Computed example of a mutant assay.
Amino acid sequence: MTEFLSALGHQPFLQTALLAGLLASIGTGVVGSLVVVKRITFLAGGIAHSVLGGIGAALYFGLDPLLGALAAAVLSALLIGWVRLAWQAQEDTLIGALWAIGMAVGVLFVAKTPGYAGDLMTYLFGNILLVPQRELWLMGALDALLLIVIGLYYRQLLAVCFDEELARLRGVNVTFYYLLLLVLVAVTVVLLIQVVGLILVIALLTLPAAIAGHYVKSVGRMMAVATAIGALLTSLGLALSYEPDLPVGPTIILLAGFVYLASAIASRLIARRRTRATLHPDPADGESP
């Protein structure tokens, strides 16, 4: 840890990596909370893994891979949303098929890219240490977009997350806001690709929000706490992986997984203790001094 803090002061790539993690944490906290509340982790997984097709196509045609990822993510979100709304009886199978097709298309494009000698593992598992400074601007712009959209349509998105039927009865355009939610997930996936890659993106998208959900009930507070937890996990994961030269993405996810398990056990024990205290109150508590 001491070596990391010392290097952080004079290594620009570490400063860029730290800032990238902090920017990604905003999407993790804000959109991840909606994913956890709505329980659409599987749909988010389908969006995330379909992104590889856009990355591969962008590389093949000489375009920015992140822009290809963004286009593929949004397209996948709309397609998966339509599948969920129109084909609920076969939802899991169709989303699984889109998931596999997106990855297969991406691998084929990467394999046929002329002269391409890059490492596919970078896109699958991420490499926050290789994030160029120019992409921080894109990440910042995507964060700003997420915050603006959620700020404008916060109540409608919450209504769709908690009870679609009630929202429809109240005049909310459920289809539009549901698809908007999936597009927000798509944008967040692109943010997180740089940090942990396609394979691990769902863990970072959901674990900080799930940890926050153990201790707060308000969705707004959940978003704030999850953002702080995401920032802490990405920063600490970067620091812990530096000295032993470990892959940063898997280190962050392992750390997040351990924290989640510890939090789940602790919250369960606290809940049991409260239940026991309610059912069997201590007689001494009712005595007057």
Rank of each mutant, 00 (worst) to 15 (best):
V185L: 05
L205G: 02
L205T: 02
T175H: 11
V174G: 13
V201N: 11
M223P: 11
L184E: 04
Y177S: 01
L207S: 04
V216S: 01
G197V: 10
V195I: 14
I199N: 13
P208W: 05
Y177R: 06
L191W: 09
S218P: 13
K217N: 11
I202S: 00
Q194D: 09
V190L: 04
L191M: 10
V190E: 02
L200W: 00
Y215N: 05
V187K: 07
V195R: 15
K217L: 15
T206V: 12
S218R: 15
G197F: 00
I211T: 04
L205H: 11
T175Q: 15
L180V: 03
L207Q: 10
V189M: 10
V195E: 15
V201D: 07
L182E: 01
L182P: 00
M223I: 08
A210G: 05
V201G: 07
V174Q: 13
L179Y: 00
A212H: 06
M222F: 06
P208C: 02
V195H: 14
V196E: 09
A209T: 11
V189H: 07
R221Y: 13
L207I: 14
L184Q: 04
V216F: 06
V185E: 03
A210C: 08
R221N: 02
H214W: 11
A210F: 15
G197I: 10
I211R: 02
A212D: 06
A212T: 05
L205P: 03
G220L: 15
I193K: 09
V196P: 08
I211M: 09
L205E: 03
V189P: 00
L180P: 00
L180T: 01
G197E: 15
L181C: 03
V219E: 04
A209K: 14
T175C: 14
T188H: 07
L200E: 14
I193E: 13
V189D: 09
P208H: 03
A203P: 10
S218D: 14
G197Q: 14
Y177G: 01
V219S: 05
R221P: 01
A209P: 15
I211Y: 00
V216C: 03
T188G: 01
A186P: 00
Y178T: 02
H214S: 10
